[in-house]
Amino acid sequence: MIYIVLSGLSGIAVIVNVAVNGIVASRIGTIRGVGITFFTGTIAAGALLLLKGETLAAGDITSVAIRFAAMAGILGIATTFIFNGLVQRIAAFKMVLLRFIGQIGVSILLDYWLFDLFSLGKCLGGICLMTGLMLFTRQNGSGEETHSNA
């Protein structure tokens, strides 16, 4: 249960971050904004490492896991730039809906493929998620689009 609550809290933090990043990007440009985010992130994560007494080992460079971390970092940048590029070109509700469909679809597949975590509950839950999301992001009767930062 605690991990589900933590995930929910990280979702809340994502929205705050998207909004603040938007303000930062409008002031100094997207590339500099993302650069500052990842620079301060690296410093903060490094400080955490020091506080916890962990050290970087030379063997980390040759580890397979470093490739996972590097790919994740690069994908983090790529998704941020794609998101920023799409914001002005596609309706917000459509973008949120499609992005979540992609996320949930690939996560169900990866859970099944890598961790053998497939279940009927996950599929039914996924359908509920999409239904709820469609309701949440649906256009108003007046034709005004529902905006969301998710």
Binding site: G41, A44, A45, E54, I77
Partner: peptide, 12 residues
């Protein structure tokens, strides 16, 4: 901790 550090370093 280390995973988060490498993630941000790669991103930066």
């Amino acid at each position: 901790y280390k995973g988060t550090f490498y993630f941000h370093l790669a991103g930066f």
